[in-house]
Design a protein around this nucleic acid. Structure first.
Lengths: 239, 239
DNA sequence: TTGCCCGCTTGATTATTATCAAATGGTGAG
DNA sequence: CTCACCATTTGATAATAATCAAGCGGGCAA
């Protein structure tokens, strides 16, 4: 692992508060690796051996059952993923694959657990990270159970726009079929939902999204902070 | 809070490993309370002030959006709930109400966070508890996204049966309309699904469930450990 | 015991979403 | 530059689940 990558990892909320010693020890047993696009990193059912930290690129988390597949989330840098499986020393409930060429730091799960036990500040940061993940998943489940497909798409567009600082236009960050799967519908249904939302304040041509009538879109999406707001990365900003 | 209740709480995985001192301090600032059935304990959106520990009774966790409601989970004693909101010092994403008369220990969230920071063993137990909750929610989301209503019902019956030690017959632990909501469907749809499953190995008359053809039911439900297995309460059994 | 309330069921219909099949169109390899 | 591939779109149809309305029936209070 490259020496100059350590500061970037160190700045992550998960690693920021821990002692220099714990951090050094963890980094010494970890290694970074580059992966090409569309590579499977691990599969659901395997035992969780490494905490993954995405340094650059994009990773998709998905699950399968009886030939059906659903995208559970998309990871953007810099963030750690599948920490819960590592903490529990259990099997992955999701599979991961790169979407773009990605650089990932792999931290052995048992060293991770050991460091948490030794370093209370690290334990607190890990706890917060886990609580964050839990709440993200609660929001996802609520979204699925309380909204229909059109409403989910509308809310997703609004969220994405807000995330980008309120931009009225943006480019889809993933393929439509993956977005569809994340929203819990088929690609065909997404295509039809997109078309039907032209009357409701969003226009999507190819990968170009344009919010043409924010009020109308908002009325349809019914944005709710308890479903749509991002979980802050960080409860204890540095300094 | 009654002195004789402490040992029961102390035996919980969450509280078992912590120091006697931390436990005593926490218990001193906590109090237990009895609630009648169908009482709202807290509502989504409120700031999380107390970790709740259900000592006896039953509590339902549900969420609402735009007049729609969905049951996110049902808590059975003895277990703690909404720990993530307390850790993050955030708003509840779910509301809670008692289903039966319930006794609940309320632990102030800030004392909780303080104790975690001071007691590494407690922090580890809390981390495990949170990871458990996360994985339960991942399973719930997978269930919703990968299975249709009939399959979810079939899998639920099978899970419940397994949980009861492989019983071929049992009594529904909650009202059907709540089960329906948990499964993400309407009460009417549940009623029809129940009827249609008579051909597939389950008979439900009133609250009486009977598995008449386990093989057939299993074939339909397609039970999967990565969706249906319980998350163990406990990674570190006592002794 | 009677009557009422409420959860559940059933029926009819509609809404929503999936499936299957066939175009369309953009992109990258050769 | 052209072709082939693959994501996307569109169309037709079927499956799935929701909605609205009415009836059933068990439990509980008066």
């Amino acid at each position: 692992m490259r020496e100059e990558e350590r500061p970037g990892i160190r700045r992550l909320p998960l690693f920021r508060e821990m002692s220099e010693q714990t951090f050094g020890t963890l980094m010494d047993v970890s290694y970074a690796q580059n992966f090409p696009p569309l590579l499977d990193l691990f599969s659901q059912g395997q035992n969780a051996d490494f905490l993954h930290v995405l340094i650059e690129g994009t990773v998709e988390l998905h699950s399968d059952w009886h030939g059906r597949e659903t995208v559970m989330g998309v990871v953007q840098p810099v963030s750690a993923f599948i920490i819960a499986a590592c903490v529990r020393d259990g099997a992955y409930l999701m599979s991961a694959r790169t979407l773009e060429r990605s650089r990932i730091v792999l931290i052995p799960a048992d060293d991770l657990r050991h460091s948490m036990r030794r370093d209370a500040d690290f334990a607190m940061a890990a706890m917060d990270e886990m609580a964050r993940g839990y709440r993200v998943m609660v929001r996802h489940a609520k979204n699925m159970k309380l909204r229909n497909a059109r409403e989910r798409l509308a809310a997703w567009v609004l969220r994405e726009s807000t995330h980008l600082g309120g931009a009225a236009g943006f480019v889809l960050p993933v393929e439509k079929r993956r977005l569809a799967s994340y929203l819990g519908i088929t690609a065909e249904s997404l295509s039809r939902s997109i078309r039907s939302l032209r009357e409701d304040g969003v226009r999507i041509d190819g990968a170009r999204v344009t919010i043409t009538d924010p009020a109308r879109l908002t009325a349809l999406a019914g944005p709710d902070p308890l479903i749509d707001d991002p979980e802050p990365d960080d409860r204890h900003p540095p300094g």
